[in-house]
Amino acid sequence: MRKFTNQEFANLTAIHKRVIEPPRKEMRLIGKMKRNEMKLESVDDGHSFHCFMRQSEEFQENFSIGLVYHPGEEPGSIQLLRFNGQHGGERSHPHHSIFHIHTSTADDINAESWSRDISKRPQRMVRISKRSPIFWTLSS
């Protein structure tokens, strides 16, 4: 079973990517969320990614933009990053709604048998941002 390192995740996040399937011009409204997606590929060595975008139709401050990596040799994916709006508290700041970023750590991913799972979630490393962070600069 493949093991990942944090350096690998950082590289995958930072590597230059190109859009191979662009998002729709408009977000799609499904139920109470608006959603959009796009597929990406790293410029140099063909790593596959997709980016998801979600926003609550009722509460605009509840949004998520995530970068997901598809290793390819087995089914499944890893959510490298997720940018969240001021949706409500989280464990380190339960009483404050703040912009924040979830990132995966290698320990969390490697600790679970990810090859049996459909996807892994970025979990415990949460960075707080005082303002809405810039997704594109960070990840490409």
Binding site: K32, S56, N62, G66, S119, R121
Partner: peptide
Amino acid sequence: DHGLTMMRLSYSF
């Protein structure tokens, strides 16, 4: 939940 559970689920499923 005002639709936020399904939104969260849709990130990966």
